[in-house]
């Protein structure tokens, strides 16, 4: 087991180094300093800024230094777009708002989708299943952005209007986070995110359950006299954990991406919003630091996925 985990970690190190390499190269395809300064500034200004960031050194040196920054988690270059703040500080400010949206969204959407998927597979081929499948496909065919726009309109404007007082804020983020302010500012984005991912997820979980339902071991369990609920919640669910874990982990980057959209739209000062604003401002140090962190988070979830596999599947654990 420990050997297995170690192997997965070792395997992911070159992948992560590769990502850093690709990202750094991509960000240097044009001169980032000129892109930020614009043509009006002098060559001396340019060179000064370039030197300050070490962008005038050989690429290999920059790469090694940046990998060092990543390992020690010290992105202490000053942001160009927000002078006076380092990339590290911006990161620290942005993590909590991102997490309070992403984590509940992931949890809720997975739980609800798994349940709906189970229900759907239970009624396979009959009316409830058909209705759910059709709803899922219809839901999947509408753009995320439409959900957000209409969700905000009906969830915030219309609902507040009808009820007479504010249930959900139209946009923004609370100065101090309490369960109450969380509900006001974050519940609507979370709900929208859950609804959007549900179409894909229920279909997937249904397919997984239906597939597991046709396996031989199910017949064996029935032949033993196991009840339907025992079969569904004990035999099937434990086997289905492998695809479920994969799915949840695959949803993560989508949620990070999706939360970029939600953060932009609802004005939540999370990591995604910071990154997009940095790109608009040509804020090179922040872009570089944030992409490295995003990719790092993703790699960590990959490793976690593998570890979870091993926990549920003895064939992985004991091999």
């Amino acid at each position: 087991m420990w050997v297995y985990i170690l192997r997965r970690i070792l395997y992911n190190i070159p992948v992560y180094l590769g990502i850093l390499l690709l990202v750094m190269l991509a960000l240097r395809t044009k001169d980032p300093v000129w892109a930020f300064l614009g043509k009006r500034k002098s060559v001396a200004d340019h060179d000064a800024l370039e030197h300050k960031l070490g962008l005038d050194r050989a690429f290999a040196v920059q790469y090694v230094l940046f990998v060092g920054d990543v390992v020690t988690l010290s992105f202490d270059q000053e942001s160009w777009g927000q002078p006076g703040k380092t990339a590290n500080e911006l990161l620290g400010d942005a993590i909590v708002p991102s997490l309070v949206i992403t984590a509940p969204a992931l949890l809720l959407s997975s739980l609800i989708s798994i349940c709906v998927g189970l229900i759907s597979s239970f009624y396979r081929g009959r009316t409830p299943d058909r209705v759910l499948v059709i709803l899922a496909v219809l839901g999947m065919s509408i753009s995320f952005l439409v959900y957000i726009i209409l969700g905000q309109y009906f969830g915030a404007f219309i609902l507040n209007d009808k009820v007479g007082h504010r249930i959900f804020a139209v946009e923004g983020y609370p100065d101090s986070l309490t369960p109450f302010t969380w509900w006001t500012y974050c519940m609507l984005p979370v709900a929208i995110s859950v609804i959007v991912t549900m179409g894909y997820d229920t279909r997937f979980y249904r397919a997984v359950m239906v597939e597991e339902g046709t396996r031989d071991y199910i017949t064996t369990a029935r032949a033993k006299g196991a009840s339907k609920s025992k079969i569904m919640f004990v035999h099937m669910l434990k086997n289905a954990m492998i695809p479920i874990i994969t799915r949840v982990m695959i949803t993560l980057p989508f949620l990070i991406g999706g939360s970029i959209l939600l953060e932009m739209y609802f004005g939540i000062p999370g990591m995604g919003r910071r990154l997009i604003l940095a790109i608009r401002d040509n804020d090179f140090p922040v872009i570089q630091a944030f992409t490295a962190v995003f990719a790092g988070l993703y790699i960590i979830t990959n490793i976690l996925t593998d570890v979870l596999y091993a926990l549920v599947d003895p064939r992985v654990r004991l091999s």
Binding site: V15, K30, F254, G272, F290
Partner: peptide, 22 residues
Amino acid sequence: STFSSIPYLVLLSVLVYMFNDT
């Protein structure tokens, strides 16, 4: 593995940054 380990929108954003003002 490398490509799929970069969240999709992050990769897109970096690429778009590359093309900004070109």
